[in-house]
């Protein structure tokens, strides 16, 4: 065996090791993010229980729920596209997470390979997958739930996009880490949220965010007493478990996106803290508000937050 072969073998070994480490990093990152997302959901349940003057479940209840759901055996024999939809639904937010700057927590830098538009479109892979599964399930309630979710999406995307684009107009980039770097980390005066005229865009986008998280008052798509929990009506067992995981991952992604654009979330640590703050604000509103009708919600979203965000955008562009 000559030296070249040895070196080749060694480099192949190193390559393999590198790939292994990278895979591990990706897995650790995804598990961490989903775990934090589930923790947020636990906070939500505890929080709303306390608001309702109850003791509430333990804060780790979502973990228990997910373990239970994943361990169940579904009694459904559906078309295999149903399973495909569920996999796509859970996979979508995971891909989205990989493109967020949060990934530097384990030393990855995939976020430098994608930008805002990619992220906006990756964000719908998950919902679309579950919409497909709901459609395969053939329940009319599922179709109504999807219809409502998509109507809501049309509603909240407009103020959210207008708000985000105001930031793009100011910073001149759609790369997330560059937008974050243009703000200060801990000084609120350096956040886009508290700068004139971006504050208008931020308020509009923040109302849109409430719709994006489908918290009250924009919670029509999952209306258990009205349409039998909508999209989820045919999901039980592992499908529902994967949907909970998807919800957790999406929470991180959506809140993270907002934190990066408006709260100067630069490092993973401060991003996570800001995600917590944003989520507490969102669930505070959720705990005390009722639910709009779908048409009311759509009108509300396309009226006030849109006007505010548009004003913010126009002032940013022309001022």
């Amino acid at each position: 065996m000559n030296t070249a072969t040895v070196a080749g073998a060694a480099s192949a070994g190193a390559k393999f090791l590198g790939a292994l480490v990278l895979t591990l990093k990706v897995l650790v990152y995804l598990i961490l993010m989903v775990a934090i997302g589930l923790f947020l959901m636990g906070i939500y349940r505890k929080f709303s229980a306390r608001v309702q003057y109850r003791v509430g479940p333990p804060i780790w209840q979502p973990y228990i729920d997910v373990i239970k759901l994943l361990s169940k055996k579904d009694a459904a024999t559906k078309n295999w596209v149903f399973d495909l939809g569920a996999v796509m639904g859970f996979g979508g937010p995971l891909i989205l997470l990989l493109f967020l700057p949060l990934d530097s927590i384990v030393g990855l830098n995939f976020h430098t390979k994608g930008d805002l538009i990619l992220i906006l479109y990756l964000a719908v892979v998950g919902p679309l997958g579950f919409a497909l599964a709901a459609s395969v399930g053939a329940s009319p309630w599922g179709a109504i739930g999807v219809g409502r979710a998509l109507s809501m999406m049309l509603g909240y995307e407009l103020p959210f996009i207008l708000g985000i684009l105001a930031v793009v107009a100011k910073d001149g980039t759609i790369m997330l880490h560059k937008v974050a770097a243009a703000q200060s980390i801990w000084n609120p005066a350096g956040w886009h949220y508290f700068q004139w005229p971006l504050i208008l865009a931020a308020i509009g986008a923040h109302i849109g965010l409430q719709g994006m998280l489908s918290e009250k008052p924009f919670e029509q798509s999952v209306a258990p007493h009205e349409i039998g929990s909508g999209i989820m009506v045919e999901f039980g067992g592992r499908y529902l478990g994967m949907m909970l995981l998807m919800k957790a991952a999406s929470l991180m992604a959506e809140l993270g996106l907002f934190a990066i654009f408006f709260l100067g979330a630069t490092t993973p640590l401060d991003t996570i803290i800001k995600i917590f703050i944003l989520y507490i604000i969102a669930i505070s509103f959720d705990a005390v508000l009722g639910r709009f009708r779908p048409d009311q919600a759509f009108v509300v979203l396309w009226k006030w937050p849109t006007i505010i965000a548009l004003l913010g955008l126009l002032l940013t562009v022309f001022a």
Binding site: R45, A49, Q52, Y53, R54, V55, G56, P57, P58, Q61, I64, D65, K68, K72, D74, A76, P224, H225, G228, S229, M232, V233, E234, F235, G236, G237, L240
Partner: peptide
Amino acid sequence: MTSRFDMERFGIMPMATPRQAD
């Protein structure tokens, strides 16, 4: 269910469809 006894302490929740129920 409500604040007097609060069954959610034990993780017990009402569900809307048989698919999700235990």
